[in-house]
């Protein structure tokens, strides 16, 4: 298809054409290699946006909160892009992506870009696609990138691996009471938000969280616990202050540098895995003898090594 070798995509991207950005993200989502040229060409003028990730159970108010944060950032004249992921149906691979509903008041603001992504629609995982998308968004000129992801499966870990600051969103509702917090969430949370603080029980949830965090090993950064009413835009400024405080902490402590280096390593590993997977698939397709031997010997390890050892 012509679009895969679109020679004007770069030009359109540089001229600020939203469709070119949107198309480039689609290329990333389906791991189309032609986007690599675009990325290379853009690298020199790419700036690095601030990246905040919001995660939590469905219905906790993440999209509403992100919408409120976008409003705040627009008041501060920052441009902002939102990448919102929802799970795909495990059966059909299709998805209903509904996060935009809560953010539609920003639809006509040219300094706001909102993109929905199916969480499973990524070979190589969500983090791989988001990292690349974030780079494109930076090159396009966005100051801030906000990730929203449903805290199911592995997706919240993948978001934490990409975001500078991870905000874990809880509510006073029973379903996600503190005892129910998934293992691993403590490690990824830089900020806790108890949203829907207009509902009964939020002080109890905050107290439980505080008690839990007091048991955590001492660390340089102590995740603050904040209350918000996203639907009324309450507590959002304090939340963003906390995000900025965490950002300053990362800079001052040298963690920002360490993190960005670690990410390059991680990403290289992920890309290598993806390339290897592709090579293996191709080799088994192109070499019926190899495929036949694999089926006869049932030795995927040996076959994989053989494929990777082959000269190309």
């Amino acid at each position: 298809m012509g679009e895969n070798t679109d020679p004007v995509l770069l030009k359109r991207f540089r001229s600020g054409d939203v469709r070119a950005l949107a198309r480039a993200i689609s290329l990333i989502e389906r791991r189309d290699e032609s986007v690599r040229e675009l990325e290379q060409a853009l690298r020199p003028d790419a700036k690095t946006p601030g990246v905040a990730g919001f995660t939590g159970a469905p219905g906790t108010g993440k999209s509403t909160l992100v919408d409120a944060v976008v409003s705040l950032l627009r008041k501060k004249q920052s441009s902002v892009a939102v990448l919102a992921t929802d799970p795909n149906s495990p059966f059909s691979g299709g998805a209903i992506l509904g996060d935009r509903i809560r953010m539609q008041r920003h639809a006509l603001d040219p300094k706001v870009f909102i993109r929905s992504m199916g969480a499973r629609g990524h070979l190589g995982g969500l983090s791989l696609a988001s990292r690349e998308a974030i780079r494109l968004l930076g090159a396009f000129g966005f100051d801030e990138v906000i990730l929203e992801t449903v805290g199911v499966g592995q997706s919240e870990l993948e978001v934490a691996a990409v975001a500078d600051t991870t905000v874990v969103v809880l509510t006073p509702n029973l379903g996600d009471s503190v005892q129910m917090i998934k293992a691993g969430i403590l490690e990824i949370a830089d900020i806790f938000v108890v949203n829907k603080a207009d509902l009964d029980g939020y002080t109890r949830v905050m107290a439980e969280l505080r008690a839990m965090l007091s048991l955590a090993p001492k660390a340089e950064w102590k995740p603050p616990i904040l209350a918000t009413v996203a639907s009324r835009q309450e507590g959002v400024e304090q939340l963003w202050e906390a995000v900025l405080a965490h950002r300053r902490h990362l800079e001052k402590s040298g963690q920002a540098q360490a993190l960005s280096e670690q990410r390059l390593r991680d990403e290289t590993g992920e890309v290598a895995a993806e390339l290897a997977r592709r090579r293996a698939r191709q080799a088994l397709e192109d070499d019926p003898e190899l495929a036949r031997r694999l089926l006869a010997d049932r030795t995927p390890y040996r076959t994989a090594e053989e494929i990777l050892d082959r000269k190309r």
Binding site: A22, G94, G121
Partner: peptide, 28 residues
């Protein structure tokens, strides 16, 4: 449509034509 494997982006009620088109462009 989801069950048939499509990715559906639902933008909700009370949209204007401009909002819908804007969403379609951003969502590719």
């Amino acid at each position: 449509l989801r069950d048939a494997g499509y990715e559906v982006i639902y933008t909700g009620l009370r949209q204007t034509p401009e909002m819908v088109v804007d969403a379609a462009l951003q969502e590719d």
